[in-house]
């Protein structure tokens, strides 16, 4: 074990952390935005669209994320050409982000949907009986009660996303993991353990930091939960 070597390659890794963070943040934000209408369609069982979202969720759940990355990287240009756009290839980064957005849209919708369904029918009816519009009912009554229920699941989704993002190197994105493979092949496979151990520590650090943020939000939301009387485990468990 060459500790000095590990320290010497650390700055290089710090340089690519923003790339991993970019992939994670953009995928999380837009994945969440996508998950809202998907959950809405499934909750309201909108004809036809419901069938499509069922297929979509089944697809993203059943196919390994690595395979999905390849499908998107090679598939998007083909699809765009079929639609008449003159594109021969797209950047690995774009493919990776599109893929993870779509993956998280499905995953997070399955967090939001049960949170919505956990709210008693009486809460809806009380608001409706007072003449709230659907939008007013959702924003003032339903979503504030859903948030603390959905938070642990969304936190888990983000931790998973951080881990999944380490696979984007496979289609050529130079993120933390991508850099690790480059360095390790550059040193002719000599100090593999040191390289990957460094990477492991970096992921640990990122996950730990994210977990702290989520725990903080959760503590705030737990107060809301105590008041509303919905049950939640003392501490949500994350698989970091």
């Amino acid at each position: 074990m060459d500790l000095q070597y590990m320290i010497s390659i650390l700055p290089e890794f710090l340089r690519v952390i923003p790339i991993t963070m970019l992939v994670v943040v953009v995928s999380a934000v837009f994945g969440f935005l996508l998950s809202v209408p998907v959950a809405g369609i499934r909750i309201r069982k909108v004809p036809v669209l419901n069938l499509i979202t069922d297929l979509y969720i089944s697809f993203t759940r059943s196919i390994p994320i690595l395979l999905q990355l390849f499908l998107f990287f090679f598939g998007i240009p083909v699809l765009l050409q079929l639609l008449g756009f003159d594109v021969t290839n797209i950047s690995a980064m774009t493919a990776a982000i599109v893929c993870l957005i779509i993956y998280n849209g499905a995953y997070m919708s399955e967090v939001i949907r049960p949170a919505y369904l956990a709210i008693e029918k009486g809460q809806h009816e009380a608001a409706e009986s007072l003449g709230y519009t659907r939008f007013q009912k959702l924003t003032k009554i339903i979503i504030p009660q859903m948030t603390p229920i959905a938070l642990p699941g969304l936190g888990n989704a983000i931790i998973h996303l951080i881990h999944d993002s380490s696979l984007v190197f496979a289609i050529g994105v130079v993120d933390i993991m991508g850099l690790a493979t480059i360095i390790s092949s550059g040193s002719f496979g000599m100090q593999q353990v040191e390289v990957f151990l460094t990477v492991a520590f970096i992921y640990w650090g990122i996950s730990f930091a994210s977990e702290q943020i989520i725990r903080y939000l959760e503590r705030r939301k737990k107060r809301v939960l105590n008041r509303t009387g919905y049950e939640m485990k003392e501490e949500a468990e994350y698989n970091v």
């Binding site: 809301v224 008041r227 509303t228």
Partner: peptide, 20 residues
């Protein structure tokens, strides 16, 4: 529907107070 609801109010069996 909204107009009608805004002229009435309901007291439910299960109270249905907004829990939040």
């Amino acid at each position: 529907t909204l107009n009608l609801r805004r002229k009435t109010a309901m007291v439910f069996q299960q109270y249905n107070l907004f829990k939040n």
